[in-house]
Computed example of a mutant assay.
Amino acid sequence: MEFLDGATARTRPYLLLTDSTGQQLSSTELAAVVSQLFDTGIQTLVFAIGPADGWSPAARKRADKTIAFGRITLPHELAAVIAAEQLYRSLTIRAGHPYHTGH
């Protein structure tokens, strides 16, 4: 993966789209994606909630990864809460914290 912008020596943002047609991941699988991004030095993760009528072909092409929170349609506010919780869960899985396992 080439993420470094030679002009600024910063990584370009990693764009993760959420859309009902995206790849369905378990919490552990999402944590693995987040961990891989950390390990490769990504500095900014953009977690974008899909618009009501879906992403444009240009947005899909620009995305580094597209994931789904299942095939159901969620209100944007609820999708944002789920995204925040899953990102938090990913960080606790990465840290070996018991939050994910319920202990």
Rank of each mutant, 00 (worst) to 15 (best):
P75F: 05
T18N: 04
Y99E: 09
I49Y: 10
A80T: 04
A80I: 01
D39V: 04
A63Y: 06
T11K: 12
A59E: 15
G6F: 14
P51I: 03
H76A: 15
P98V: 04
G41H: 07
A68V: 07
Q24Y: 09
I72A: 09
Q43N: 07
R10Q: 11
Y99H: 11
A9V: 08
L45T: 02
F47Y: 13
W55A: 11
V34S: 03
A7C: 06
A95S: 15
L17E: 09
L87W: 06
A59Y: 00
G41I: 03
G50A: 06
W55T: 11
S90A: 15
A58P: 01
A59K: 14
L4Q: 12
P98R: 03
I49H: 10
R10C: 04
D19T: 06
T101F: 00
E29V: 08
V34Y: 06
Q23H: 05
P13G: 10
F3A: 01
T8P: 08
P98L: 03
S56E: 08
G54D: 05
Y14E: 01
A95N: 15
Y88G: 03
A31N: 11
L45K: 02
S26D: 09
A68G: 07
T21Y: 04
R71W: 10
R71H: 13
A79H: 12
I49D: 14
R60N: 11
Q24K: 09
I72V: 05
I67K: 01
T21F: 10
R62M: 12
A63M: 05
L87Y: 09
A63T: 08
I82D: 01
S90C: 13
L30A: 09
A52T: 04
K61G: 01
A48Y: 01
T8W: 05
W55M: 07
I42G: 01
L78V: 15
L45I: 14
T40D: 11
T44S: 12
L37V: 06
I49F: 07
L16K: 03
L45N: 07
G22I: 12
G102M: 04
Q36R: 15
F38E: 14
Q36G: 10
H76Y: 09
K61H: 08
R89W: 03
H76D: 08
M1D: 06
F38I: 11
A63V: 04
T92Q: 06
R89A: 10
A58D: 15
Y88C: 11
T11M: 13
I67A: 13
L45R: 00
V46W: 14
D64Q: 06
R60L: 14
V81W: 03
G96H: 09
Y14I: 09
V81E: 12
G41S: 06
V81R: 13
M1N: 04
V46S: 05
D64G: 06
L4E: 13
S35A: 15
G22C: 06
A7G: 02
L17G: 13
E85H: 10
F3G: 04
D39L: 13
F47V: 14
Y99T: 02
A68E: 03
G70F: 14
T18R: 00
D53H: 04
A68Y: 02
R60H: 12
A84V: 09
L25Y: 01
H100Q: 09
R60P: 02
Q24C: 01
L15E: 06
A48G: 11
P13N: 03
E77W: 10
I82F: 10
L91E: 07
D19C: 05
I93W: 08
I49M: 08
